[in-house]
Structures are given as C-alpha cells and as structure tokens.
Amino acid sequence: MIIPLIIYSLFILSYVAFVAIILWHLKEYVLPDDKRNLITKVFLGTIAIFIIISAALFFTVPWDQIFHV
C-alpha cells in the first residue's frame, strides 16, 4: 500500500502543479471580459471531480491482495 500511495501522491502533486501553471498562464494573458473563461471553469470542475473519484478508487483497490498474488 505504501509504494502505490507514494507514486499516486507524486502523480497528484505534479498534476496539480501543472494545472496551477496553466491557470497562471490564463490569468496572465487572457483578455478581461472574455466569455470563453467559462470553459476553463468547466475544465477545472471536471478535473476536481476526477481527482476525487481517483482518490476514492485508490483507497478501494485491494493493494495488499494484488501484490501478494
């Protein structure tokens, strides 16, 4: 369980860092009052939902059984 947890945590951390870089670019370069900003919010919402789903699935996977087979 420990090794998958470390790998998964590193993945999520680098993922969130990447998303933060993208958001910084958008904040820096998007024109004010651009209505397409809504699509960015949809992306962020979907990513947040899938991070929660993947975390929930991670803790339901029987890692010990899988690695002892």
Binding site: F18, P62, I66
Partner: peptide
C-alpha cells in the same frame, strides 16, 4: 480484485487526457 484496479487506472487515464 482487479476490477477496482482497472477502474482506478481508467480514472488516472481520464485525468491525463483531461490535462
């Protein structure tokens, strides 16, 4: 045992595709 693992890997794949 592996169906939840498959679902978990699918969620990771979807996250990568989303990014």
């Amino acid at each position: 045992n592996y169906t939840t693992l498959a679902a978990f890997l699918l969620s990771i794949y979807i996250l990568i595709i989303l990014l």
